[in-house]
Computed example of a mutant assay.
Amino acid sequence: MSPDVTSEKRALRAELRERRRTITAAERAASTQSVTANLIELTSGLGVKSIAAYLSTPDEPSTREFLHWACDSGIRVLLPISREDGLLDWAPYDGTDEDEDLLGMPTPTTEVLGPIAINSVDLIVVPAASVDRTGMRMGWGRGYFDKTLGSMERCPPVYAVIFDNEFVDSVPSEVHDQKVNGVVTPSGITALPSTQPNSAA
């Protein structure tokens, strides 16, 4: 791991976190409405019957309204639960109760299915700090999603949810970082030139 790249990522993540914290309530409400509509459009257009996604935290572009729509629409939703070994377990989400995992991230309270449950989904929706126009995703530094995507033999489309100003020309990357197939932002859905995310490793 290059110290220069690591430092660059750390500084960029700090800048992005601060930028997210300064978004006004009105801007956040507008982005939630737009992101929800775009996620519904993406999911409907792909005709998916099951998705792996995540419950957004207050500073992230909101996925919660979309996930409630998915549950109400009969789409099977799996959400991640962080493990101490760096892998993700998955559990079904019913749009109601939630808990916190070992990292303090919101998780469902249903039966834990284990890491391989994600292999059955039609679409993966992931968080990101930033994504560039080649599809390279920069996460928040824990590596859970990179490890998950890199281990999948047959990966469905993967879309990251970010704010518009986080979709950039390039991001610092390392060999383990995984690409995504597209991004969903408040302004729209953008398919990217990457093929399978795990082809970027």
Rank of each mutant, 00 (worst) to 15 (best):
L55D: 13
Q33A: 15
G47S: 07
V48M: 06
P58E: 01
V35E: 14
D89I: 13
S34T: 06
G47L: 05
V121Q: 00
D101W: 09
A30Y: 01
A37L: 12
P106T: 02
G95L: 05
Y54G: 09
I124R: 00
I51K: 01
V35L: 07
S120H: 00
E41K: 13
L88D: 10
T109Q: 05
R28K: 13
I51T: 03
P108K: 02
G135F: 07
Y93A: 12
A91Q: 09
T24K: 04
T107I: 14
E60P: 15
S73K: 04
D89S: 11
I124C: 00
R133N: 01
G47Q: 09
I23K: 09
M105E: 10
L55A: 07
I51Q: 00
M136N: 06
P115R: 06
V131H: 10
T32F: 03
D94M: 07
V125T: 04
T134F: 04
I75K: 07
R83K: 14
C71Y: 12
P58N: 03
V112F: 14
R137E: 02
C71L: 10
I40Y: 13
R64V: 14
I81K: 12
T96V: 08
L87P: 06
T24R: 08
L102Y: 03
S73F: 07
K49Q: 11
E27I: 02
V126L: 03
R64L: 15
L42V: 08
R28M: 07
D99Y: 13
L103D: 02
L123N: 03
I116E: 06
G74P: 09
